[in-house]
Computed example of a mutant assay.
Amino acid sequence: MQEKVEKLVQWLQQQIKESGVDGLLVGVSGGIDSAVVTNLIKRAAPEHSLGVIMPCKSNPQDMEHAKRVIEACGIDSVTVDLTETHNTLFTTMQQELEQQKGLNPEQQQLADANLRARLRMSTLYALATNYKYMVVGTDNAAEWYTGYFTKFGDGGVDLVPLVHQTKGEVREIAKYLGVPDEVVNKQPSAGLWEGQTDENEMGTSYALIDKYLQGEEIPQQDKEIIERLHRNTAHKREMARGPEKF
């Protein structure tokens, strides 16, 4: 585990050097993946790393966990409350759609959640420009493979150091790094709405996705879910598409 952490830290340091930036920042959600990345960037750039807390209709417990993560690793931090910004933008959009009779109530929960993710991305890049930092993402191998991230939201980053680490491996790294137990053991959730959990939304478990990615046998039903998620989200892992030159 020490060797793995050292290699990830060295890789991050190499990205700083090659890109000509001064440091790294990450959005700290209170979840295990962002906690691990927070610790990694602090090790990679002790004097030039930043953890950003961005409440926006957030669960108070997630806020508390994010603060504990920051305190535990000693990283510099800033909090930008996006609640009012989100409310203004989302309400304005809904009002305009209602006037045009184009509002789709069935899609409003997802639109709301994705807007929050993209506001956070915009905030991170504004801060990154200010500090001359790179934005570091938190997606692990399971999330990347299944596309369980918002395009140009939490997927809108410069670096994804955990992209080859399964959820189980992220948990082991977290323990090694001294991430608070309440963060390591909490139910994975993007905090998008009340009662939302990653696994309920995906329709399968991280444990089964990890096994699938490691080439192990899993129930056929879960295999089909994982493969469908991967196919349907291929566009999230690609640059913007264009037609053939003609």
Rank of each mutant, 00 (worst) to 15 (best):
I32H: 06
K4C: 12
P161Q: 12
I70K: 12
R171V: 09
M134K: 08
Q2T: 11
T88L: 08
D158L: 03
E6S: 15
K175P: 00
A113Y: 00
G191T: 01
K186S: 13
H48M: 15
R228S: 12
L25M: 12
D33F: 01
A240H: 10
H230L: 00
L124D: 14
N39T: 05
D154F: 08
K17R: 13
Q165S: 15
Q109P: 07
H230W: 00
V183H: 04
C56S: 10
H65R: 13
L110E: 13
V170Y: 06
D139W: 00
V157W: 14
G51K: 08
A45S: 14
E201N: 10
K211L: 08
E216G: 03
R171D: 15
T166K: 07
R171Y: 12
I70F: 11
L177S: 03
K167S: 09
V28I: 10
V78I: 15
K167C: 13
F149T: 00
G74D: 15
N232F: 04
N39C: 15
E143D: 11
T92I: 00
G168Y: 04
Y145L: 11
E199D: 07
G178H: 03
V183Q: 02
V9Y: 06
D198A: 09
T233A: 06
K132D: 15
M54Q: 08
P55F: 09
A44F: 07
E71W: 12
N232K: 05
D181L: 02
V135N: 13
K186V: 03
M54P: 07
E169R: 05
P60T: 01
E227L: 06
A141F: 07
F246C: 06
L213P: 06
K4Q: 15
D222M: 01
G74L: 12
P55N: 08
T38V: 01
V183Y: 06
G156I: 11
Q2C: 06
F152E: 09
R116W: 00
G156A: 08
L192T: 04
A190K: 00
I173C: 08
G155N: 10
M63V: 07
K17N: 11
L110V: 11
G178K: 01
S122V: 01
E98P: 03
Q196E: 11
R241N: 05
L97M: 13
D222L: 02
T233M: 01
D139I: 00
N200S: 10
E64S: 10
G31F: 05
G168I: 03
L103W: 05
T91N: 04
P105I: 10
F149P: 07
D81A: 12
A44Q: 12
L12A: 08
N104R: 14
T85N: 06
G30A: 09
A128P: 02
E182M: 03
N232L: 02
D222P: 03
